[in-house]
Amino acid sequence: MTTPPPAQPAVIMRDVVKAFAARRILDDFALTIARGEFVALLGRSGSGKTTLLRILAELDTVDEGTVLAPRNRSVVFQEPRLIPSERVWRNVLLGLSRRESTLARAQEALAEVNLADHARAWPHTLSGGEAQRVALARALVHRPDLLLLDEPFAALDALTRLRTQALVHELWHRHRPAVLLVTHDVDEALRLADRVVVLTDGKVGLDLRVDLPRPREGAGSRFDDLRTQLLAELGVARPSSPA
């Protein structure tokens, strides 16, 4: 179900240049993300995927160019990055004003990630998957217009990863923020995103619309076709059978 009316942009990046010690990570880079659009960003390691996300999170600056993004943004990092000295529900409310910071609000957000009964737990008692879901609740409690996901599933075991991916998809569907998912997993990108963008040599090397019905099972000839195209762009000539 692709939306036919032209959506308003949530992210506009134009002529962006970012260099680290004379190496141009982003080189006249341009990208637009529409409101509510789920974009996955692929790239070889060291291609600048994370740098791009950090620029949108205002954790890094650009050297040149224009970057426009909504004020209300949230980030989920690869590690949960919870505050160890605060209970789960206080973590979820991080950054909200005192008036908005109520246990009820935290519990509502935690219920969405199926952790309602962990509100009073200490972060160190959570499993990796649970902690990452708390990080997701913390990101969504702000009702962001742009959700930045920096390889949020990479550190999870295979089964937890599938479950968490399904949860992200469900929450995106319910709240419809624009999403930028940085990942190195082609299947993950194809399963979740409306559009898959490959970052190659500081530019958009490939920009594929994933015109597959949801929910996607990760099978079918069209899926395989898209997969082959993406892997070719990433420099994996002959895709091996799915692991």
Partner: peptide, 8 residues
């Protein structure tokens, strides 16, 4: 960084 992202 988390604090920066969530505007503390």
């Amino acid at each position: 960084e988390v604090g920066q992202v969530f505007g503390l």
